[in-house]
Design a protein around this nucleic acid. Structure first.
Length: 218
DNA sequence: GCGACAG
DNA sequence: ATCTTGTCGC
């Protein structure tokens, strides 16, 4: 499979992405992330479900697969989606909102990992990235909650959001079935004392722990 | 052609 | 993302 074909897949799926306010009050939220075991050539994907707004741990879904695609900027989906989809199928309950570690529509072809996953699952997703990939922006103020827009010309495709005072901001963008405003709102409401929102922080820690060798039960 | 470039 | 030791700061 060459990049031209994969690029065509992204350009086609882009038309399926829906940007609009979240249409339900979430009762179950999820965070997902992937880690790698270089020596074993594995990718470990994890989904962690929490109640909302109480943030009580509900369930964990995981998957370990052999890495079959290299990391190529703007094509991250093709490397991580297979494992993420498998981890999702491992879940009994289905989340009303999913936070994904990566870009949503703030992507050269409007289909970052969060958007791609959202369309395939037909679930609301929000992209939460630790660094920028696409779009123009100015840095926001230093206080938690302050944010600036990520622009594609005149179009607002996301926000640079300060989740912790004095700490590097996050690059938030809608994945699917949410808009920029709700994306900002939920990322902020799910962040408790750390830079990353709790669902993603948990998924990150757990997947890394499994990659390191252990396999913790939940 | 050159530089940039999620995880 | 992963590989890696110490170090600065609240």
């Amino acid at each position: 499979m060459d990049l031209a074909s994969l690029r065509e897949i992204q350009e086609n799926l882009r038309g399926k992405v829906l940007i609009r306010p979240l249409d339900v009050e979430p009762k179950v939220v999820a965070g997902c992330d992937s880690s790698y075991s270089r020596k074993r050539g594995l990718i470990i994907a994890v989904f962690v479900l929490f109640t909302y707004p109480g943030l009580e741990l509900l369930e964990v879904g995981k998957a370990l697969r052999k890495v079959e695609f290299p990391y190529i900027p703007t094509y991250l989906s093709f490397r991580e989606l297979p494992a993420l989809l498998e981890a999702y199928r491992d879940l009994r309950r289905k989340p009303d909102l999913i936070l994904v570690d990566g870009q949503g529509i703030a992507h050269p072809r409007g289909l970052g990992l969060a958007s791609h996953l959202g369309v395939l699952l037909d679930r609301p997703t929000v992209g939460v990235a630790k660094s920028p990939l696409f779009g123009e922006f100015k840095m926001p103020g230093l206080r938690r909650g302050e944010h600036t827009s990520i622009l594609d010309g005149d179009r607002v495709i996301g926000a640079v959001l300060r989740t912790r005072t004095g700490v590097k901001p996050l690059f938030v963008s809608p994945g699917h079935r949410v808009d920029v405003e709700d994306s900002i709102r939920y990322v902020l409401e799910l962040t408790r004392g750390y830079r990353l929102p709790e669902p993603i922080r948990s998924a990150d820690r757990l997947s890394r722990e499994i990659a390191k060798g252990g396999d913790i039960d939940v």
